[in-house]
Design a protein around this nucleic acid. Structure first.
Lengths: 338, 338
DNA sequence: CTGAAAGCGCTAACAA
DNA sequence: TTGTTAGCGCTTTCAG
């Protein structure tokens, strides 16, 4: 099979019998071109199936690539998947292409992805950073004008914008909701590793709420898992304690689902539960799941909007944007201790 | 703030007092370089924070960009989100970057995304095509060697590889499961638009199963919705029919969730249900949801693997790969008609 | 209104 | 072991 070379600007020019610059003028509506010339050029473009090479264009213009890079821990996590679509809803209108990569919570891998994005000269960098990463290595690029926005978790070692959920307030609200319904022993099912920003902040909100109500903080009630299965196991172990909790706060979507499964397996419909981050079908579970809902699409959109503003020349101080969470009572949090 | 220009190869060369080519040699381990020169170059690279410009590299090499383009209808759909992570698990090891875009099921938007990807000279194109698109416009690029793989749905007007679920067999199996448990009136809750390949094929499997058991096909039992809410409404309307179904086959994840919600709202725990595509917490629903599980990660991985094989020179005929579905009985499909 | 030359940052081919 | 020249495809600059 003959592998045809892709036509270039000069191919089109030659075909029409004009110079490359003229074709360029037609394609970019740049400078005056005779109507007839324009038509002949367009015709040749059609006929040859010419598509301007964006790499060459970007290079010649000496600007960044019209792409933005995004690093998330895991694309298949519905939370981040929704964040991505929030980002895309904003970037699409601006003609920006989205480069994505999963860090799998691995600092080395995150760095390698970021390195690739930088080598591609992306216009901006959005990321949900891994817990142990130090982003000092981005300082030069930042001060060279590269917008960097941290998502879901703040970065470390670098002054940059960030977009976070109201984690502490949300966890406080969820815990208080349980306390108000009479619970005195409330378990915390978090994610791992424990250094994870969202885990730490939500744990803090939980502790604040306990303290505000004069309840003791009991470390044995704090467990964690890094996925649904391990969270379910951790939940079951909590229930097996000598003095078990009568209510649970689950600190993210996987922990929530794990807690639901753990409670179901133990046949415990009497244990109250509030989940952080909404999950599908929460309303048809029995009991229906009360959650502290995040707004991942809004988080993504906000991060993208900030990046675009920076690209448009916004040189104001780096700021942290908090996207509010919202308590959605559905039943599971309203159970009363026996 | 001084916006420092990013250092180039020549900057490094000048710094060290060698030619650009020497720096290039060091960075690409290409040709002999004196140990001492190498060291001095590396040192300068570090000090200046030099990162080779990938755009320039790709251009000079005259090859495609080391990126692959992916178009899906909706990133936030967990099915596609998981497909994406399947793709990424394969591409990451090969140093390929992933460009993504959502078509929102809009043919124009799909085309615009594909156009952008082509202008970027991506190495390969993966997409879940919109129902009404004609991909004939990709012929030239295909015969110029661009690997194109259709995902979840076959493309139209173009000979290219595709990766599909065993839709017809899966729907047949799910329906047969219901028939075996004594159901004679089985509703079909599909997605919309009705031209959608997955809807059509799964409907066909459903009809085949009915026919195989000598059951009549009743169009009034076939409804649809394009999201969970509308699917729930459609389910409720089915239940309100004069001669309502005693069992349902839901044709995708949103339809399943909608059916679950519709049944729950109607308080009908006696209606059997089999969903196509697994959903989270299916096992803790009451009754637990029986599904025809797809393997979206495997689909993504297969599509990426095929694209890579094509890049590696595989010139064999375009083929369609079927990723098997699997019936997972959990209870909701095992209910018997009253 | 149109074209010629130069150059973005990099590397292949050749020369020294 | 190193350097020089040329050119990937495009657009800017400056001349016609």
């Amino acid at each position: 099979m003959p592998v045809a070379r892709r036509p270039t600007l000069s191919d089109v020019a030659q075909e029409v019998g004009v110079s490359a610059k003229t074709v360029s003028r037609v394609l970019n509506d740049d400078g005056p071109v005779a109507a007839e010339t324009r038509e002949r050029v367009m015709e040749a473009v059609q006929r040859l199936g010419f598509r301007p090479n964006l790499m060459a264009r970007h290079m010649r213009l000496g600007k960044s690539d019209t792409a933005i890079g995004l690093v998330v821990p895991d694309m298949s996590n519905p939370f981040f998947a929704t964040v991505v679509s929030g980002i895309e809803s904003v970037t699409h209108g601006r003609g920006l292409t989205l480069l994505v990569g999963s860090s799998a919570q691995d600092t080395e891998r995150e760095r390698s992805l970021v390195g690739t994005f930088l080598a591609r000269r992306v216009s901006a960098l959005l990321m949900a950073p891994t817990p142990t990463a130090d982003h000092g290595y981005l300082k030069a690029d930042r001060s060279a004008g590269l917008p960097v926005v941290f998502l879901d978790r703040p970065g470390s070692g670098l002054t940059a914008d960030s977009v976070l959920s109201s984690n502490r307030r949300g966890a406080h609200e969820g815990t208080t909701h349980l306390i108000r319904h009479g619970h005195r022993r409330i378990g915390f099912v978090g994610d791992t590793p424990t250094e994870l920003y969202t885990r730490r902040t939500r744990l803090q909100g939980y502790r604040d709420a306990l303290a505000d109500s004069g309840l003791p903080y009991d470390r044995t009630l704090v467990v964690g898992g890094h996925d649904q299965r391990t969270a379910a196991g951790a939940t079951e172990r909590l229930l097996d304690l000598e003095d078990p909790p009568t209510a649970l706060l689950a600190a993210n979507n996987f922990a929530s689902m794990g807690a639901v499964v753990g409670l179901a397996r133990a046949g415990r419909r009497d244990v109250a539960l509030v989940g952080f981050d909404d999950i599908p079908l929460a309303e048809v579970l029995e009991p229906a799941l009360t959650v502290v809902a995040q707004d991942p699409a809004a988080m993504g959109a906000a991060a993208a909007t900030i990046a675009l503003a920076r690209l448009d020349g916004d040189r104001s101080r780096a700021r942290s944007t908090e996207i509010p969470t919202r308590l959605v009572p559905r039943g599971s949090g309203e159970l009363r201790p026996r």
